[in-house]
């Protein structure tokens, strides 16, 4: 891969991916609350994968062959959809947990009158 052949979008994706991985590593090293190795691993796989596809477009051919779908673009889109669904599932789980926390707090506050 020659530097002269590199397009702007490849550099942009690479920079964004590096930043996202850096932030994940920083959170893990500083042991920020809620950060786990699993989250870091997912972050590296997702952003690292995007960087790999941006820098080495031929990688999508291997991906297409691995998934069993003809056409490398289709394979990338399908993988993207899968990741989006996983992210939505994760977000909904977090929302549900926060909703339950709010309910618990509201209940505690309502029952305080009795328990005082």
């Amino acid at each position: 891969m020659l530097v002269s052949n590199v397009h702007f979008y490849q550099i942009a994706i690479l920079v964004i991916s590096c930043l996202m991985i850096f932030f994940g590593l920083e959170k893990t090293i500083k042991q920020k609350p809620g950060q786990t190795f699993l989250k870091l691993a997912i972050r590296i796989i997702v952003w690292g994968g995007m960087a790999a596809v941006a820098l080495f477009p031929s990688f999508t051919n291997y991906l297409a062959h691995f998934i069993g779908i003809e056409g490398n673009v289709n394979a990338v889109i399908l993988t993207g959809f899968l990741l989006v669904f996983l992210i939505i599932f994760k977000i909904l789980s977090v929302v549900e947990r926060i909703e339950q926390d709010i309910t618990r707090l509201t209940r505690k506050e309502a029952l305080k009158k009795l328990k005082q």
Partner: peptide, 24 residues
């Protein structure tokens, strides 16, 4: 009367009432 400061739904309110009843 016990009061939820914000609306949490019928299920949440019922459980609050049941917990209060058990406490009493």
């Amino acid at each position: 009367a016990l009061r939820h400061k914000i609306n949490r739904g019928k299920g949440a309110a019922t459980r609050t009432g049941i917990e209060a009843a058990l406490f009493l």
